[in-house]
């Protein structure tokens, strides 16, 4: 589904990703871990098509197509979803309106008929249960005045509504208490299917108690310094990152 080959990316002329190679197949969950500043969010933003990041070399194939050539909205319409580490607030725009606009944009791109507000409400009510969210949240402005945990849950709600093919979760677990963490993980697991995939970026191993990854990658200094099975996460939990960084240095 996703093939990243020797990807180099820079922001404001500063190289950040320095040769990432990663293959994610349908049905898989990959965890990306690593110390702060190692480039995890950069990788996520590059995959989603943030214009501030420049791809200096390498390639990204998504469903066999060149992802780099696609505008951010096109990637989204094709099923790439990023749950942001820091979701943005859009004051005055109701969550329901925003969600429906996004849902319809995807339908429209697929040449399907758009849904009206009533149909959409039925659909979204189902998804609200999945993330245990109060329906009142639909009528509040997108993320405005939401607590950190509410924002993260809102990201998962959007993910549930948009039903992505490739979901990238950037530290969705940070700042969540254990109950919220369980809900978020439950949501991700419920959406898991043989024909979609997820990249879960996390700083802590505790999320991986709930979302079981097929592979774990450790990112440091813009490179993947180690990959392994789920047991790698436990080892990182026990030993920290230093031993890996020393090994690379």
């Amino acid at each position: 589904m996703l093939e990243i080959r020797d990807l180099h990316a820079a922001v404001d002329g500063t190289p950040i990703l320095k040769g990432i190679t990663l293959t994610v197949n349908a049905g898989e969950v990959h965890a990306v871990m690593g110390p702060n500043g190692s480039g995890k969010s950069t990788l996520a933003q590059v995959l989603a098509g943030h214009p501030a990041y420049e791809i200096t070399s390498g390639e990204i194939l998504y469903k066999g197509e060149n992802l780099v050539e696609m505008e951010a909205e096109e990637r989204a319409q094709q099923g790439v979803f990023l749950a942001f580490q820091y979701p943005v607030e859009i004051p005055g725009v109701s969550n329901a309106y925003f969600l429906r606009a996004a849902y319809n944009a995807k339908l429209k791109a697929a040449g399907k008929e758009e849904v009206d507000p009533m149909e959409f409400l039925d659909l979204v009510e189902e998804k609200l249960k999945l993330v245990d969210m109060d329906p009142a949240m639909l009528h509040r402005s997108v993320n405005a005045g939401f607590s950190g945990g509410e924002k993260k849950r809102n990201e998962i709600l959007q993910m549930a509504v948009l039903d992505p093919t490739l979901a990238i979760l950037d530290e969705t677990d940070s700042g969540l208490d254990i109950d919220a963490l369980r809900i978020v993980a439950g949501g991700v697991n419920a959406l898991k299917r043989p024909d979609n995939a997820a990249i879960v970026v996390t700083h802590y191993q505790r999320l991986l108690n709930y979302i079981v990854p097929d592979q774990v990658h450790v990112l440091a200094g813009g490179r993947i310094v180690k990959s392994g099975g789920k047991e790698l996460a436990l080892e990182l939990e026990a030993r920290g990152y230093d031993w890996l960084l020393e090994a690379v240095a």
Binding site: A48, G49, P51, A72, E73, F84, I90, G92, A105, V142
Partner: peptide, 23 residues
Amino acid sequence: FYLKQRGLDAEQAVSMIVSGFCK
């Protein structure tokens, strides 16, 4: 970018942000 990542184009995105501001 947030709105584009959800599938909206630049026009829709600006229009949505500004309408929200003026609501």
